[in-house]
Each structure stands twice: as C-alpha cells, then as structure tokens.
Design a protein around this nucleic acid. Structure first.
Lengths: 347, 347
DNA sequence: TTGAAAGCGTTACCAA
DNA sequence: TTGGTAACGCTTTCAA
C-alpha cells in the first residue's frame, strides 16, 4: 500500500466522526446544498482536527474538471531564453491566483507523446502553447480536438484561435524608423537562430518581415542575419555585419541572449556605441540594462503576457462556444543610451 | 456534462468492442498478467482505432500514485533569475525523460495554501523545493509529514534530508584565493539582495561566510555588500565599493543579474577590467559571457542540478526508508578575461 | 435538512 | 487465459 493511502484522511472517515453521511460532508464543503448550521460546525471541527483535504484526483474524476492547466513548451536543452522562462513565471503565478495549478509539458512540434499525456489522459482543463511556428502541428491538433487552448505567439493564420503576442513586425519597423529618423541609412538586423527560422518560428519570421518592409519603405539599405542565442554568436555576428557592409551605422536586434557578444564584437572592431554605431531592438528589460550603454529597446512584458494568456484560457474553458479573443501587444520603445544620430559618412 | 467526458473513450467501451472484460484490457496494457497473443492484438487494434488513452486521474486514484512531481518555488513577481529558471528547465526535462509530469507551485516560506494543494490533496508523488533558507518552514513541514522531497540548496542542518547544492562557501573561497594569488590585497564581495539575506536565504549566507573566512585566512582586507538583482543596483554597488575603499582591486560576485551594472559602475569610475580591477565569482555561463571582458567564474550547472534533483527524488519515492542522499557540486572556475594581476599599489 | 446509492474510469484481487 | 467485482475518494441525483 502506498504512503499516500496510508496517511490519507478521507471523506468517509470525516463523515463517520461527525456522525453524518458522506454527502453531507461534501455539501458542507461545497455549499451546493443547504446544511444546518449545527452540523456544518460539527463537520468543520472534525475537518480541522483531522486535517482533512479532499483528494484532488477523486474530485477531478467525479467532477470532470481538473483545475489544472497545461503549459506546453519545446525541449531546449539548457538553452532557455529569459523570455521563455519569464512566461513560465507569469503563467504560473497568474494561475495560482485563480486557484489553478500548472502542469509543465515539454513537447516538440511533431511529438505526440507529450500531447497525449496532457490532453489524451485528460490531465488538464486547457493548455497554453509557447514557441509557436507559423505552421504548428500542435495547434492544429488542439483545434481538431476542440480542446481549449491559448498560444503565446500566433500561427500564420491565427483567425479562430486565442492568442497573445507581441507585434514583432511593427515593433521592428519602429526600431528601423527610429534609426532612420536619426539619419542612419545602412542598417542590419540580428535575428534569432537560423534553426528557429527554418523551423518556421513565428516571431523570427514576423520580425524579419517587418525589418525588410521597413527598410524598403524608408529607402534604407539593410541586411538580416540569423544569430545563435549566445554571446559568442553575437560577437561573430557583429564581425560579419561589419565585414559585409562596413558602412553599417545602425543595428536592430531581437536576440537578447547574444546582445553582450554583439556589443563586444562592435567594440573590438573599434566602433563606439552610439557614437559610431547605434543599436536598438526588442529585449527583456534585464538584458537591455545589463549592457553598456544600456539598450534602447521595446521591453518584452513576458510576465504580463503570461498573465494574459491565463485569462484568455480561462475564458475559453468557461465558454468554449465563444469566439476566441486575442491580444496583440506593442510595448513602447524605451529610450536608453545606445542610439544616437548617424555619424558623418566616411568619404 | 463537460467536454472531457463527452469526448472520452473509456476502457469499458474498448472492452465491449474487443469482446473482453475491462480487466483484460487493463492487463493487456500493463502487462501485469499474461494475455494471449490473439486477444492482445484484438484489443490493441480497438485501442488504435478509437484512440483510447487511460484517464490519468482514474489511474492515479486506483493505483495510489500520480506520476507527477511537484516543483515548489516562491513567487518572485517578474524577478526570476536565470538560475532559478534554468533549474525549472532541467527539472522538467529530466522528469519528462522518466515519464513524470511536473506540477508547478508557487509557495512562499510560510504559506500553507500551496503546500496543501500539492501535498494535502495528493496531487504529486514527491516534491522539489527551491530557494531554500537556512531555517525553512516548508522543509520542516515536509519532514514532519514524511512526504518525499528534495531541496535544491540545503538547509542549515541538512542531515537527514535529500538535497543537491553548489558549495558556495568553498567556491567563493577559491575565487578569493585566485585573487590573492594574483597579488590582490583588498577585495570586495557582491552578494544577493539584502532582503534575501535577512530571510535567511542559504546560498547568500554560505557564500558570505566563505568570503569572510577566506579573507581572514589569507590575511586580506575585505568588505561584503548585498546587492539587488538588477543592473542599476550593480552600478550603485560598484560606486559604493570604490567610495568605501578606493584601494579595492578585486571583486567576487555571486549576483549574476547585477553583473552588467557592476561592470558599468567600475568603468564609469575609470577602472579598467582587469587592468585596474579584477572581477570573478559564481554565475550562469550565459551571464559570464555576456559581459566584456567575459567573467572568470564558476559556472552554475543549473540544468544538471535540476536533473540530479529529479534522480534523488525518484530514489526517495521508490524507497522512503533509505537514508536520504545528497550531492554537493563544485564546478571549476573557468578562466576568462576579467581577472589579472593586481596593479601596482597607488602611492 | 439529511441519507443512500449510483456513478466517474481504473486497477487488482478472487474465482473459474 | 479470462471474467466478475470490489476498491480508490469524491460528487450528485433521488428519496425521504
């Protein structure tokens, strides 16, 4: 016999001690049926004495709801970004505030196993999906089954799904605009890793599209670079940018993890920020402020996005028939110290 | 009726279609009793057709085990450190590899509610506790109830508990030693936030003790500073250090989130790293490499620690009677570019 | 206002 | 090799 049973106080025992039926104990707890004040009191006393708590699984089984939400994210080895991890924090705290637990699930795009554990075995009432791709098998799967879900990020054709996302396209556009306003004519774009791009990772694609559109509309010259999520890659990326186009005076980055390396690469090449080259982009505030000079950037409100995702999900669960809602966030670009007017062009 | 039930295929239906009893289906799945090849096949076919998966809660109820592990961490608003978050990643992936799910729970030191949800309602088979204090109410509580648990970090008197921890004391000691070897005579220590110290946060205390012991043994002058977990605090801390003791030429830090600010403060004060002042300490590799020059530091193997925690926990669950084991980790200090020999003393 | 009993979907023991 | 059935701990309908 397992310890769980051994140490378990159950409703039957409470009922016996309080000299009432099990149903009365249940009703006293849920309040779904009037219970006389006298017996309610007696029951409560026994419960306090014995430290009784209803078994969550038995309750889930009887009620058909689990009061647990799933958080699905892909395995990343040791390479979680700050952003991803702060989503997790936001989601979990918001869920706790609403009396839900969060069940973590690492599931790759095509991976059936984890999905089945979560949805197939009915462990959760709904799920939040992170790291969305333009074409996302997990999302399609959820849709088919009619299971309540919300995505952080949005698929290519998000109509009919519930999601919360940053408007990466517009945000990057604004960064380019900002550089353009400062007189920069040749700019570069530092994106997330190439592997993610190939996998169809939505934010990387939308950010790049935004960059290219903006460069075109504003009549600038620009080049986009994928970059791995670490400092060394950032350093190499800076070298590459300057090698390809020495006249580059502005950089937009959406890769916070490589930021320190990017700065280092630029500095090693003898470029001062922002005197010789301006840098801006989208990043967690912590990263933006860790570099010197601090990065002018749109701060990712990861924590808030986690909270919003939970709210949207609970809405879906409460009313599966309603039209799915979404939130497209566009945090302001906060001016710090990494951008300035373009240097006089070299002869 | 909830959607869950509506879309649910259950064992009874499978049994009916395969023309066997429910128990046979159950045994065919678990293999705990021989089943003739013919019926096993027939059952499997029905299962595949109908997409049957046993309901996790019903199974948990019947078996008395949940195949779910709890991960308890304190609420942090938006201020999770990289380290904490990477623990979460490591724990989750290791659990998934062993076919366990992870249930997240935000629980403050004294908070009963979350504890009760997790343990009282028997949602998990065991739990991992993070952010340990020297005196930790949660740990005591777990101990009393005999519930299987492992701590990441260790309490003041850890005997009899299972834990995995970094040897912060010795690690900081080695950092001081390293500085001493390079000829530094006056050093400073940048710790985690004061609030954490006051709360009895173990790693902050053990690190500080290690610093003071080392300074004493090596005959150096040293001062310790608490520092909040952000760049601005790091900057102010640098200023403070130089104001208090301008002759400081070496710094040991265990506060990765303030590292960028610390560098900035030093640089603003006209000190070049490592020419005028050396910096070293304990930090996640990502942070250590994000700053320029990259930090000579002991890299926190957060991911690995998460994995170890899971292994220790599964051990506890499998054999509650065994003596709890532990792992004290001491990653090497990897030499990067932030330390060098002490400058000639000023006149 | 309360009790009895039938589920919820599994597992595992007892028979056959 | 299989089937019947009593748990597991709770909720909720039906009766009183």
């Amino acid at each position: 016999m397992s310890r769980l049973e051994a140490s378990s106080v159950n409703i039957r025992e409470v009922a016996r001690r309080a000299k009432v039926s099990r149903s009365t104990v249940s009703y006293a707890l849920s309040g779904k049926r009037p219970v006389s004040e006298a017996t309610r009191r007696r029951i409560q006393q026994v419960i306090d004495e014995m430290g009784y708590r209803p078994n969550a699984f038995a309750r889930a089984l009887a009620r058909g709801e689990t009061r647990t939400l799933g958080l699905v994210f892909p395995p990343a080895g040791s390479h979680y970004t700050d952003m991803q991890l702060n989503f997790m924090g936001g989601v979990t705290e918001a869920a706790a505030a609403r009396d839900y637990d969060v069940l973590l699930s690492v599931a790759d795009a095509g991976e059936e196993q984890s999905f089945q554990r979560l949805i197939g075995e009915r462990r959760v009432d709904g799920a939040i999906l992170m790291e969305i791709r333009l074409q996302d098998a997990r999302v399609e799967r959820m849709r088919e089954t009619g299971f309540p879900f919300v995505t952080i990020g949005r698929i290519g054709e998000p109509d009919g799904t519930a999601w919360v996302d940053l408007d990466h396209g517009t945000l990057v556009r604004r960064c380019v605009q900002h550089l353009s306003d400062l007189g920069h004519r040749r700019v570069a774009f530092v994106n997330r890793p190439e592997a993610l791009l190939r996998a169809g990772y939505e934010s990387a694609h939308r950010a790049r599209d935004g960059f290219e559109r903006a460069v075109g509309e504003l009549g600038l010259s620009g080049a986009a670079y994928p970059c791995d999520d670490d400092a060394m890659a950032g350093e190499r990326c800076a070298e590459q940018i300057l090698a390809d186009h020495p006249g580059t005076t502005g950089i937009v980055t959406v890769n916070e993890a490589s930021l320190g390396g990017l700065y280092r690469g630029l500095t090693n090449a003898g470029r001062r920020i922002p005197h010789d080259i301006s840098v801006t982009g989208i990043a967690g505030a912590r990263w933006a402020e860790a570099v010197t000079p601090a990065l002018t950037a749109a701060d990712v409100p990861a924590h808030e996005m986690g909270r919003i995702a939970i709210d949207l999900l609970l809405e879906r669960i409460a009313d599966a028939g309603a039209t799915p809602r979404h939130r497209l966030l566009m945090p302001p670009i906060v001016l710090r110290a990494s951008t300035g007017s373009a240097p006089r062009p070299l002869p």
